[in-house]
């Protein structure tokens, strides 16, 4: 799914520039705990979160995550946004709750990943 389609699906605004058609995203991970993101998310997933401090973008950077969707109307601060731009991370913002955003994206075809707890 293209970033533009994700935006339409969850009624999101774009806070960084994105090259149209550049990013095709099929999977997502949602959490407010960045340690869980670091443990379970894969590269190139969409990260859905309500945590708006700079560590969200740092986490995305470490994992090569190319698109972050903030929910519940949260917005990254200036530092986060500058960091995202420097690292080529697309930042979106939606007023929906995390539950609603995830539900709509799932309905539109985005899927989660396999949680491997080493069991």
């Amino acid at each position: 799914m293209l970033v533009s389609e994700i935006m339409k699906t969850v009624n999101a605004t774009l806070l960084t520039k994105d090259l149209p058609g550049q990013r095709d995203i099929s999977h997502a991970f949602s959490a407010d705990m960045m340690s869980d993101v670091l443990a379970y998310a894969d590269s190139h997933m969409l990260l859905i979160t309500g945590l708006s401090n700079p560590q969200t973008i740092r986490t995305a950077e470490m994992l090569d995550i190319s698109c972050v969707l903030y929910v519940r109307g949260k917005k990254p601060d200036e530092l986060s946004l500058a960091m995202a731009k420097r690292n080529g991370i697309t930042v979106l913002c939606s007023n929906l709750s995390m539950f609603d955003a995830c539900g709509l994206l799932y309905q539109a075809g985005i899927r989660g990943g396999i949680i491997n707890n080493g069991e």
Binding site: D32, M33, M34, S35, D36, L38, A39, L51, N53, Q55, T56, T59, G118
Partner: peptide
């Protein structure tokens, strides 16, 4: 620290992983 997105007890296990 939890409100900053960390402190869930995943740090060392993540490092090991």
């Amino acid at each position: 620290i939890v409100s900053l997105g960390f402190g869930a007890g995943m740090g060392l296990p993540n490092m090991k992983r």
